[in-house]
């Protein structure tokens, strides 16, 4: 087998190995790049920034551990921003695994970085409820019909910040983090559109193209994958310079992603060069 043929049919295990190295090496050597928020992400930041302090924001966590590396950084950044702006955060999940993911963000961001925040006054964790888009449909009209207790079993009427919440229309903004179905698309279709509530959010890079048709009329903004999360972090750092020295997870992980993209590009180039050489050779031999 000639070198060209070999390069044209590289064993997938070699590709896997190089991708692994492209991820591990930048992680070990902490290679990262500056991010610049694109308009589609900046609009989400601007929305949270422009809402009056104390506005009610719904944060549905619709993802599981598998997609947490992509979605948790954006959930962290948005929660941090909401805390900074003293917004009231209502956290819930349409995915059973979302409840535990939400707990991680509550513990790491709200409880650790903002210990002055009071549960039931500044934030509430409503937990997971089954029903998917049907649930969105129901709580659009009546939230307390489905949520009679919070995630810990406390009756909803005993939670101060729930007293003036009847349905989804009472929220100034819905920022969803989703990895699939039910997710951002359902929040747009069943809450944002019928309830005239501003909806935006973040999703995995794989699902992002699917949501572009909803931007900007039905969906305020979109954070697509880790790149979107890194852009939000960049916007947060720009708006709140005290975060310059705080570890920004998505920006840090974007380094390995950038290198991995480069490796893929190199492989595509190699594949095409060998393809053209082989084509030329075949023509000659004909």
């Amino acid at each position: 087998m000639s070198v060209v043929e070999k390069l044209g049919n590289v064993d997938r295990r070699i590709i896997f190995l190089l991708i692994a190295l492209a991820v591990i090496i930048p992680l070990v050597f902490n290679i990262s790049f500056m991010e610049h928020p694109s308009p589609i992400v900046q609009t989400i930041f601007d929305k949270i920034e422009s809402l009056p302090n104390g506005s009610k924001i719904l944060l549905p966590f619709d993802y599981g551990p598998s997609t947490a590396p992509e979605l948790e950084p954006m959930a962290t950044a948005v929660t941090r921003h909401c805390c900074k702006k003293n917004h009231k955060m209502y956290i819930m999940a349409l995915w059973p695994t979302g409840q535990a993911q939400a707990l991680r963000v509550i513990e790491d961001v709200i409880e650790e970085e903002f210990p002055e925040k009071v549960y039931g006054t500044d934030y509430v964790h409503l937990g997971y409820k089954a029903g998917g888009y049907g649930l969105i449909n129901t709580i659009l009209a009546d939230l307390k019909k489905m949520y009679t207790t919070d995630a810990e079993g406390t009756h909803i009427d005993e939670i101060g910040m729930m007293s003036d919440v009847q349905n989804l229309r009472d929220f100034a903004f819905i920022c969803n983090f989703s990895a699939g179905f039910p997710g951002l698309k359902e929040w747009v279709q069943f809450a944002g559109d019928p309830g005239d509530i501003p909806v935006a959010g973040g999703t995995t890079a794989v699902s992002a193209p699917l949501l572009y048709p909803y931007y900007p009329r039905q969906m305020l903004g979109l954070m697509g994958g880790l790149k979107g999360a890194a852009e939000y972090e960049a916007a947060l750092v720009h708006g709140y310079p005290e975060y310059e020295k705080v570890y920004q997870r998505a920006i840090a992980i974007m380094g390995p992603q950038a290198i991995a993209h480069l490796v893929i590009i190199i492989f595509i180039i190699i594949g095409n060069i060998t393809f053209f050489i082989e084509k030329k050779r075949a023509k000659k031999s004909d």
Partner: peptide, 12 residues
């Protein structure tokens, strides 16, 4: 190609 490069900080 454009998306792969554009979705990383390198693209900038």
């Amino acid at each position: 190609f454009i998306i792969l490069v554009g979705r990383t900080p390198i693209g900038h």
